[in-house]
Design a protein around this nucleic acid. Structure first.
Lengths: 140, 140
DNA sequence: TTAGTTGCAAATGTTTTGCACGTTG
DNA sequence: CAACGTGCAAAACATTTGCAACTAA
């Protein structure tokens, strides 16, 4: 029982969810992913570890974990949703339109300005999701 | 032939697209929409003007107009894509999670910071899309 | 024991597409 | 008239769900 898997189990319990083998696997697969996998990819990686996990369970687990705030769903255009473990600090996503690569970018100042702006409108941010489509500048 | 419809026709021609009645109707419907309609809603509003326009054409027109940069597709979560005419100034979208209302918010400073940050990474922004899920603060 | 979870397959909802016909340039 | 666009219905695609079997608490 590693520290990490204990954390997963505890996080599930805290969320009022049962600790099942399937959820543990999906969580650990997502946690260990450096990229931002979609449900298909998570299913493939999960199946490689435990062939009995079904596609439906991957989706249901993702929905449950998102609901619990443990993971985040990213909506990209023209492609299925991707997922990431909820980051400690908010960050935006830059997609290289030529390579498809996703880069996380972070700015405390932008975040602060955004929060202030939203508060001035009388709202409180629950979550936000910024997608920047960009292209690498030619290095002169 | 009004100035507005001429602009639509010209915009289509400039994009290398044929000026068809269907495209003109879809464009004008979207242009006159104060909200951010989805394909379903656009189809309904379009059909009210010309009953012969098909659902497929609405989708194909939206794809063509987006490709041409004339309109923008917004990906929300747990609901079909919405559309808006490409705004003169970039703006973000705030969704009131309780009412579903979509509010456009704009900040030149955030935009500037974001552009600078992205440029520092060697990229050039093509487009961006920010979705903020928020809840109205109780007025004390 | 029993409420929550799962696997399977079927269903759902959105968006796309093949094809024959119509229209634009 | 040639290329492009359209309508229709069927297909594709991502995601969700009903149900009977299973399992965590």
């Amino acid at each position: 029982m590693t520290a990490v898997s204990t954390d997963f189990a505890q996080a599930l319990r805290d969320a009022g969810l049962r600790v099942t083998q399937q959820r543990m696997i999906v969580m650990s697969v997502l946690m260990e992913s450096e990229d931002h996998p979609n449900a298909d990819e998570l299913f493939a990686r999960t199946k490689a570890i435990d062939g009995s996990v079904s596609f439906a369970t991957v989706y249901r687990t993702l929905a449950a974990l998102e609901e619990a705030g443990l993971i985040r769903k990213l909506s990209f255009e023209h492609e299925p949703a991707r997922f990431e473990v909820t980051p400690a600090a908010e960050h935006d996503h830059l997609v290289d339109v030529d390579t498809g690569e996703v880069i996380e970018i972070e700015s405390e100042e932008i975040e602060r300005l955004r929060r202030e702006l939203v508060e001035r409108l009388g709202y409180e941010i629950i979550s936000h999701n910024t997608l920047i489509r960009a292209r690498k500048k030619p290095r002169s």
